[in-house]
């Protein structure tokens, strides 16, 4: 008998993990899903509404920034609750936790898993490899498994009115704090999530002058689009905030339309946009790799194209 333990401090991601865990159960990796919540009773109530039993650990003096302490708590909980497979979310905190927990449990671990597919007897975990150039299907062969799922890869599980899960308490002792949080600087609320945009206009380094950004904004307005960017536009030039970066170290987007302005199309970028339905690339270089990944290609200088596009859109 083995079960699947689900943990993330973010409730909305935990609801996605439940769906992933259900598929793992069907594939024979576990009998029951158990939800672990650390210092957060409200989260456990959420799980109860989805018919999932939860265990709340009260860990005094332990913050979610303390990866070593969290890994100790989860490892102990997994033993008490007889869970061989632990499911986490592949956001930054989750990935950091995944490695530590896996080493503690001597488990095989995969992060950034974006899909599950059947692979004969096994369940294949699908993730990007080679910096995003390829997609690998892998299995974890050790009895203990730690799997971190990419945020957004699975839908949130629905509430089930007919069955309510039990909220239990779990005592874990002997965990010491290893770091101290001095300050938290949350990002401004109201920031957009480009991963959810239906239409995206993406700024690459081919937009050479910052003065042209308002034109891009106008274009986005006319198309009803959100603005995304390549990494150097955010991290080197700092023209746009990092949460708008598309790609391997940014967001993976599936818009219906992506209008890509002056992006060369290196794989770390294209991995974030290859699931778009329709891709437009504007680039002055005919041979830009981005053009091979596009449905419509306009080879032209953006300095001229931007005003022309705005005019053509009326």
């Amino acid at each position: 008998m083995s079960n699947i333990l689900v943990y993330t401090e973010k409730t909305e991601l935990a609801l996605e993990l439940i769906e992933a865990a259900r598929i793992l159960c069907r594939a024979g990796l576990g009998d029951e899903i158990k939800w672990l919540s650390i210092n957060n009773r409200a989260q456990a109530e959420e799980s109860a509404q989805r018919g999932i039993d939860s265990w709340v650990v009260k860990a005094e003096g332990i913050t979610i920034a303390d990866t070593a302490a969290l890994a100790s708590i989860i490892a102990q909980a997994s033993r008490v609750l007889e869970c061989d497979t632990i499911v986490l979310s592949s956001d930054r905190r989750g990935k950091e936790l995944a490695g530590r927990l896996a080493a503690k449990l001597d488990a095989g671990c995969l992060t950034d898993v974006k899909a599950l597919e059947s692979a004969g007897q096994d369940i294949g975990l699908v993730r990007n490899a080679l910096g995003g150039a390829t997609v690998a299907v892998q299995t974890i062969t050790s009895p203990q498994k730690v799997i971190a799922f990419a945020p957004g890869a699975f839908p949130c599980t629905e509430e089930v009115p007919e069955k309510s899960g039990a909220v239990n308490e779990l005592e874990i002792t002997g965990v010491k704090a290893s770091v101290k949080v001095i300050e938290n600087r949350p990002k401004d609320a109201g920031t957009v999530d480009i991963a959810k945009a239906r239409i995206l206009v993406i700024v690459g380094q081919g937009i050479e002058d910052k003065e042209d950004l308002p034109l891009v904004q106008e274009l986005a307005g006319k198309l009803g689009a959100e603005i995304g960017c390549s990494k150097p536009v955010a991290t080197d030039k700092k023209w746009l905030p990092e949460e708008r970066v598309v790609g391997l170290s940014g967001k993976t987007c599936q818009p219906e339309l992506a209008v890509i302005l002056g992006v060369s199309g290196q794989v770390q970028f294209t991995v974030g946009i290859r699931d778009a339905k329709l891709v437009v690339s504007v680039n002055k270089d005919e041979n830009a790799y981005m053009n091979q990944m596009a449905d419509y290609v306009l080879v032209s200088d953006l300095k001229e194209v931007l005003p022309e596009l705005l005019q053509a859109l009326g």
Partner: peptide, 11 residues
Amino acid sequence: YSSQVGSRVAE
């Protein structure tokens, strides 16, 4: 890019 080796070594 699986971000686990550093955490594993720390443990």
